[in-house]
Design a protein around this nucleic acid. Structure first.
Length: 479
RNA sequence: CGGGGCGUAGCGCAGUCUGGUUAGCGCACCUGUUUUGGGAACAGGGGGUCGCAGGUUCGAAUCCUGCCGCCCCGACCA
């Protein structure tokens, strides 16, 4: 713990790996590529879950649960889907001491088994729309893994809806990406760019993929949530048909949308600095930490300080503020200050004998350099407002950073010169070959066609063909 | 699967080239004392199949053979 974090500017990846372990978010597990999410990390995930879940329910969705194992044959029904996932499937071939007749796949996503069940449940237009979501774990056997960003097993929610018409399903797809956008901005203080994936970057089997893209502090992009319109592809593969109002058979239009524990990676890299994490207050496991200060052999002072610290904590709890009193023994106050800064707690109160004499408390804000002294009888009253301000300061900081590192370029020389450290807004022809050449050249990929982008119909930044979109699209290096 | 590297205490490493008593250092951990308002100091202490198996030798962490595992870079990906 005494060791300093590697500065972001020196080695961003090293910084990331160190802070994940130092802040007690996660630990390595014995199985390659999978991790243990520790209480501090899991509390963050629980806060993500709780708030997103409410947003889903507010828009009419219900939760349910599908099983982990899926028959292998299901993956062969939708050609593009199997093509997309085949290399990264983990397969169970033996159980109960015998080889299974048909191998079972550990779900990499649940479209197929959900399709199977929906085909039994949906008979009539009266059964539609079907608006379900599940919180689950999934497995994808990735080549290279990193804590939270890409682990073999990860936690997520996957929403799967079925609709009567394309229009309705598309509206759902857009509604859900908008929920992700709002969640990222209003809870995580991350100003994502929302847009559509190009054909080459679409989800396996989808007709439209919408994404939220977040800029990390090294200015690389992280896809933080996606919402897909599947058309009738899955309905046709799994025979999800219904009788419409005219008593004609029709296939349903389906959507799916997901946000995973990767989002924790977005919070770490989107806000963190050289001191460690910076937790967005609305999701922070601990919003306020109180560090009591006293000498071990001064029982009277200890008693007075602890009583006051617990008193403040109880009053904050009564306002539903998540507060912790650091009662750990044998650690110097300086150590504790650094420890909580590393963990990214937004506001820290330091309370010692000197403060009690003056009826004050020292308040340190994770985003400010300077500390301030606040009257003891005011500190509880200002806290909710301080946390609100913290959220807005954090969001502004991230928004300014994103905007400073987003630039328009209109020729390939400038593209190559500025791709390091920036998101580039460019005209593009829409060809997958052209995308691939740019990636080979620069490691940058099309992140999205922003929903609210700069209108433009110029020529492709790389090949000079006419733009395929009526707006500029974002290219960036990504995680 | 191509290229590179590493397996010695919970973590990070030295020792291996040139075999030799009890395998060492830093951090972490335990006990005590003094400390405590920005990562405390001192003293004492616990903890090891030196990746695994075999071989050479009076003697192997060190030399030989085989195996296993992990990490980094690339192609793939939320």
């Amino acid at each position: 713990m005494a060791k300093k974090l590697t500065p972001q500017s020196q080695d961003f990846s090293a910084w990331y790996n160190e802070i994940v372990y130092k802040a007690d978010l996660a630990d390595l597990s014995p199985v390659r590529g999978s991790m243990v999410i520790r209480p501090y990390g899991f509390a963050l995930w629980e806060n993500i879950q709780k708030n997103l879940d409410q947003m889903f329910k507010d828009t009419g969705h219900e939760n349910l649960y599908f099983p982990l194992l899926i028959p292998m044959s299901f993956f062969e029904r939708e050609a593009k889907h199997v093509e997309g996932f085949a290399p990264e499937l983990a397969v169970v071939t033996h159980a109960g001491g015998k080889e299974l007749e048909e191998p079972l796949v550990i779900r990499p996503t649940s479209e197929t088994i959900i399709g199977e069940m929906y085909s039994k449940w949906i008979m009539s237009y009266r059964d539609l729309p079907l608006l379900y979501n599940q919180w689950a774990n999934v497995m994808r056997w990735e080549m290279r893994t990193r804590p939270f960003l890409r682990t073999t097993e990860f936690l997520w929610q996957e929403g799967h809806t079925a609709h009567e018409t394309a229009e309705e399903a598309e509206a759902e797809t857009i509604q859900m990406v908008n929920i992700y956008t709002k969640f990222a901005r209003d809870y995580a203080a991350i100003p994502v760019v929302t847009g559509e994936k190009t054909v080459g970057e679409r989800f396996a089997g989808a007709k439209m993929t919408l994404t939220i893209e977040a800029m990390m502090r090294d200015s690389k992009a992280l896809q933080a949530g996606t919402s897909h319109y599947m058309g009738t592809n899955f309905a046709e593969a799994f025979d999800i048909s219904f009788n419409d109002k005219e008593n004609k058979q029709a296939f349903v239009h389906t959507t799916s949308w997901g946000l995973s524990t990767r989002f924790i990676g977005a919070i770490i890299m989107g806000h963190g600095d050289d001191k460690g994490l910076i937790m967005p207050p609305r999701l922070a496991p601990v919003q306020v930490v109180i560090v009591p200060i006293f000498r071990k052999n001064d029982a009277e002072a200890k008693e007075a300080v602890m009583t006051k610290a617990n008193g403040i904590a109880n009053e904050l709890k009564a306002q539903s503020i998540r507060v912790k009193v650091d009662t750990r023994q044998g650690m110097s106050p300086g150590f504790k200050f650094n420890d909580w800064e590393q963990k990214g707690v937004p506001i820290r109160l330091e309370l010692g004998p000197k403060d009690l004499e003056n009826s004050t408390v020292v308040l340190a804000d994770r985003l400010n350099e300077a500390k301030e002294t606040v009257a003891l009888d005011r500190v509880v009253g200002i806290m909710a407002d301080r946390l609100e301000q913290f959220h807005h300061k954090l969001l502004k900081r991230a928004t300014d950073f994103r905007d400073e590192h987003s630039i328009e370029v209109d020729n390939y020389e400038d593209f190559k010169a500025s791709i390091e450290g920036n998101w580039l807004l460019v005209n593009h022809c829409g060809s997958e070959d052209c995308e691939n050449q740019i990636q080979k050249d620069t490691k940058a990929t099309p992140r999205c066609i922003p929903l609210e982008g700069i209108k433009s119909d110029g020529n492709c930044v790389h090949c000079g063909e006419k733009s395929a979109y009526e707006r500029k699209i974002i290219f960036a290096k990504a995680y």
